[in-house]
Design a protein around this nucleic acid. Sequence first.
DNA 1: TTAATCGTCGATTTACTTTATCGATAATAC
DNA 2: GTATTATCGATAAAGTAAATCGACGATTAA
Lengths: 163, 163
Amino acid sequence: MQYSVGVEYALHCLVYLIDVPSKESVGIKDLAEFQGLSETFLSKVFGKLSKAGIVSSVSGVKGGYRLSKSPEDISFWDVVEAVEGPKPIFQCKNIKDNGYLYREGSCSAPSSCSINLVMLAAEEKMRDYLRGKTLSWLNEELERVLPQKTREDTRKYFSKSNI
Amino acid sequence: MQYSVGVEYALHCLVYLIDVPSKESVGIKDLAEFQGLSETFLSKVFGKLSKAGIVSSVSGVKGGYRLSKSPEDISFWDVVEAVEGPKPIFQCKNIKDNGYLYREGSCSAPSSCSINLVMLAAEEKMRDYLRGKTLSWLNEELERVLPQKTREDTRKYFSKSNI
DNA sequence: TTAATCGTCGATTTACTTTATCGATAATAC
DNA sequence: GTATTATCGATAAAGTAAATCGACGATTAA
């Protein structure tokens, strides 16, 4: 069981959007090229991020994406949910009603299956943690952890005025 | 992204093993039949549980499975890990080294990728919760929640002496 | 206005993982 | 011995994720 690579792509790409001036944007092509990713697939991922209101798109020549809200209002969980969808990790499905765990027929019925409730609560712990980590937090973390020069070089790479 | 149904099968089946007297065992056939599951597939799942030391098997006629330790020493996480394997939900894979998140080359190298660290920590929150819920807890919960008659009927169903 | 760039969307292909089946083997009760 | 049951490996079927392709519309530069 694994999150799809889409989550990884999204989080890594969003890092590069944090610093982009609000009037500019970064193209899928640049993001894909810089990290050696499939351009077409990455555009799918950004479609989801766009639909979730995390980024907004700019069409046409010199278009691309930018964050559609402040980095401190975008949590890791927002990103994961946008890419993976809202379905819980654990979901009772096939088990027949004759098992004695079921009071109301279906296992997925609310408050029916004790096992299901535990798994959902566990997942909620994970989500809570991810809700507490925002892109602005990540930005500060990177500031602390990475050499200054590296970050500047990357900013230049994605700067339109540079071309 | 979802846990495999194997996890669901395992947890639901283990419930029926809690009450089994330590000299007896329950066969895959009964467990599968009772819940309408594929017998062959369920046997694969129990193979994993067995290898993880959660259940022990009894070969031969009237053989089957029983818990290999006390229900209070078997947590939900033990079961999930046994069935799903030890791999984390989120794992950095494909991203090239030229992204500026990497200090030591690979994203999966310890303490290298800040994003990876956050995801691993989040997952750990979920695991902690699941470690806190044991089969004996579940048993008490079911005692509280289910009609007494239902539980007794189920015990009878799996009792060898009954046949 | 025209041409080039870029995001959007749906259809499709490819690859991989999960789910399930089959067959052979070994152990045990009777 | 014979029937039953777990074990294990190989394999098939089904489903999902990853990636590609092509047509479209929107935008910008010239």
